[in-house]
């Protein structure tokens, strides 16, 4: 309880940032950006699918790095409300993205003009 009160004493004070935190985030981001660019520009892998999966994984990791080190996300800030709204948004985001891709892909595949002509 006392910890809770301490928090409210620093009313408008935003999360404390440190030089070390920003540098960790920056260096990690540079590495996480450079590797996908290198993989695509240098045609490192023969398999397109493998490359896509790997660069998407790098993107997800980099987004987490940005969230933690630049946007200072954690479970404590604002009593957990920022994290809750983030989780809510991420759920909606996945429904929008994968729902659209899934539905529209099947519309494309199952309603090809050739099929409609054949029937």
């Amino acid at each position: 309880m006392s910890e809770h009160h301490d928090h409210h004493d620093h009313a408008e004070e935003a999360p404390h940032s440190t030089f070390k935190g920003y540098m960790i985030g920056f260096v990690a981001s540079v590495i996480l950006t450079a590797i996908p660019f290198w993989m695509v520009m240098g045609n490192v892998l023969d398999s397109r699918n493998a490359t896509v999966l790997i660069i998407l994984a790098f993107a997800v990791v980099q987004i987490v790095v940005h969230m933690v080190y630049f946007l200072h996300m954690d479970f404590q800030s604002q009593g957990g409300w920022t994290m809750l709204s983030l989780i809510f948004t991420v759920v909606l985001l996945f429904i929008t993205l994968f729902g659209s891709l899934w539905v529209m892909y099947h519309m494309n595949v199952n309603m090809m003009p050739s099929m409609m002509g054949a029937s």
């Binding site: 009313a11 935003a14 604002q78 809510f88 948004t89 909606l92």
Partner: peptide, 24 residues
């Protein structure tokens, strides 16, 4: 405490949904 920052964060989350639909 930090009400503005939370409000701004929620604005950013709604912006995120705009980008989600554009990405889709």
């Amino acid at each position: 405490a930090q009400g503005t920052l939370l409000g701004f964060w929620i604005y950013l989350m709604s912006d995120c949904l705009i980008f989600a639909s554009l990405f889709a």
